[in-house]
Amino acid sequence: MEVKLKVKRFDPESPEVKGRYQEYSVDMPENATVLESLIQARDYEDESLALRCSCRSSICGSCAMRINGRARLACKTQVRNLTKEGGEEIVVEPPGNMPVIKDLVVDMSSFWDKVLAVKPWLQPSGPPPEREYLVPNEAMAALTEVMNCIMCGACVSDCTVLEVDPTFLGPAALAKAWRFVGDPRDAEDLPRLRELSEASGMWDCTRCNMCVQVCPKDVKPMDQILKLRAEATHAGITGNAGSRHTIAFTEIVEHSGRLDEFRLPILTHGKLNLVGQVSDLPVALRMLRSGKMPSPFHKPIGGVKHIKRIFRRFAGKKPSEGSH
């Protein structure tokens, strides 16, 4: 099978040359992966092509790169799943949101720095037990998703918030933070959650599911971020717009069955936050002018008492207490 690759090159010794793509054509077996094809191109056509790879079995995390515009593990991506009729070009680029060192190799320092920033080690308290900590298997099983993370960087590559704001902690670091908050042996939940609730932390995620979509190990980083948010809110760490927004939204729906868009921004800022309220005036005026201002008189739905009952029944459990 002919595999056509269009690979983005960057030579650090000629940095002025930008946006250069090089095409390779290699003959590969039917079930070849993109990684095997790249290695074939490198080994037999162009030894100057730089890429990171090792295990070939989706466990070392070296070969994350953008393939046809989306971050993937090259060793896990079969060529024939990408090309409908075969013979189409596969575009291969380095992961995004990280500076390129050479070709497909990027500088992952910011990635590692952010992981380190969440203190990614177990912090138990008190003297160690006589042997192992006794924990139910369910507690260990509940961490399965996040323990699958191989730190490949695919999520960070394609995170839509990191695209506009490199200070955001990012999906990998935040998911790793949940790994500890969710582990019953870790005793530092509250300090962790407090720190993660600060600027550029858990509340800055825009909930776009891009990380969930691209993660090759099904870690679902965004889902872990949502667990952090729920855990923080339940723990009373609510002195931030994100938490206030969630609480306000939830309370409004609980009491009326649908969203009251007039009150939501007011409650999110905090009723006494005059600066916040005033900052909304321009958009409010624009909405008014266009006839899009939601009515300040918000009617509950007919079945609102049933909504209240649903809330009473379900809204008690924290994510760390089990099924979320």
Binding site: C55, C60, G61, M151
Partner: peptide, 10 residues
């Protein structure tokens, strides 16, 4: 390689 790319992971 970065420590986490070591083959112990396999």
């Amino acid at each position: 390689v970065h420590p986490l790319r070591s083959h112990s992971a396999a």
